[in-house]
Amino acid sequence: MLYIWRLARFFYVARIPFLPWILKVLNRILFSTSVPPSVRVGRNVSFGYQGLGIVVHRHAVLGDNIVIAPNVVIGGRGMPGAPVIQNDVLIGAGACVLGPVTIGRGARIGANAVVLTDVPENATAVGNPARILRRDGDCRA
Rank of each mutant, 00 (worst) to 15 (best):
L23H: 12
F47Q: 05
P120K: 14
P80S: 13
L62W: 01
V114I: 10
G110P: 08
I109R: 14
N27T: 02
L98V: 07
A95W: 01
I66M: 09
Q86N: 11
I109K: 12
R108D: 03
L30P: 13
N122F: 11
V25C: 12
S32P: 07
K24G: 09
P17T: 08
A60R: 03
N87P: 15
A125R: 08
V73P: 05
P83G: 07
V25A: 15
G127P: 13
V119F: 05
L7Q: 15
P20H: 03
A69T: 00
L19M: 03
V73H: 13
Y3G: 09
V89E: 08
V41H: 07
L26P: 06
V84P: 14
V35H: 09
R43Y: 08
Q50N: 12
R58G: 09
G63D: 12
F11G: 04
A130C: 13
W5K: 03
V126E: 06
Q50G: 05
G81D: 06
G53N: 06
P36S: 10
I91N: 05
V35N: 12
I4M: 12
A82C: 06
A113F: 05
I68C: 14
I132T: 06
R15P: 08
L90Q: 13
G76M: 05
I132R: 11
R58I: 00
A8N: 12
A14Q: 09
I85K: 03
N122T: 01
R105A: 09
G104Y: 01
A95N: 10
A141S: 11
D88E: 08
I109F: 13
C139F: 00
T124I: 14
Y49M: 08
L116Q: 12
A60C: 09
A82V: 02
E121Y: 01
L133D: 10
I54T: 03
R9I: 00
V89P: 15
I74V: 14
G53F: 02
G51R: 03
L26K: 15
G51I: 00
E121N: 15
A14P: 04
R134Q: 13
T117I: 04
S38M: 07
G106A: 11
G94D: 05
V45E: 11
V56T: 06
F11D: 03
H59T: 07
D118T: 06
I68L: 09
F10E: 02
G127Q: 08
G42W: 02
P80V: 06
L90G: 15
P120Y: 10
F18Q: 06
R9N: 11
G127R: 10
T102I: 09
V45S: 13
A93Y: 01
